[in-house]
């Protein structure tokens, strides 16, 4: 593990995250046993290491927000099952860190993820993630509700970005 001294401990970042998601306070119980890493599917195929991520947060090391590692978590909740401590919710912490990373502009660009753009568009215009779902489409008033619920969410920016890309492409075609 990286070398840290007592003076490296900094609770500011941890407090910010707890302020945002109350449940994050439980990561203070982490005993760094590494069971979460041993059983983690992401750790088997990438550098994702939940123990190191928790340590960085507790030490106030905000570089974790720039680490590509946090984007490799499978959110499978295996770590919750093998953790000897109760109520440490690593998947929720990861989702929270990704949110912070997005806010600071470090997250991946969703416009590069064609599939996600398509899924977001279908969800906001049809209420499902697939075209022509089994059993029929959702009534329009329910679709309108979903659109309203998602106000100011990233999903709308993804949707709008896709519309803007499409209109640019169409303009190019007509030139």
């Amino acid at each position: 593990m990286d070398d840290y001294t007592d003076s490296d401990w900094n609770w500011e970042f941890y407090e910010e995250l707890v302020d945002d998601v109350d449940e994050n306070k439980n990561i203070i119980q982490c005993i760094s046993c590494g069971k979460c890493v041993g059983d983690c599917p992401a750790a088997k195929v990438s550098n994702f290491n939940s123990r190191k991520i928790i340590m960085k947060v507790l030490r106030g090391d905000k570089s974790v927000l720039k680490d590509s590692d946090i984007w490799y978590c499978y959110l499978c909740e295996r770590c919750k099952r093998v953790c000897p401590k109760e109520n440490i919710n690593i998947p929720l912490l990861i989702i929270n860190l990704r949110n912070e990373s997005f806010r600071k502009g470090y997250g991946p660009k969703y416009s590069n993820l064609r599939k996600y753009v398509e899924m977001s568009e279908r969800f906001l215009t049809q209420g499902t993630v697939v075209e022509n779902p089994l059993g029929g489409t959702l009534p329009q008033e329910r679709v309108d509700e979903i659109y309203e619920i998602c106000n100011f969410a990233r999903i709308k920016y993804v949707f709008k970005a896709s519309k803007s890309d499409q209109s640019k492409k169409n303009k190019k075609k007509t030139k």
Partner: peptide
């Protein structure tokens, strides 16, 4: 007929908030 997608995929990809 009024049930929509559960939206779990969008929450897990940080595209909607916990409240949404």
């Amino acid at each position: 007929k009024d049930q929509s997608c559960c939206s779990g995929t969008f929450f897990q990809r940080n595209l909607i908030t916990r409240a949404q």
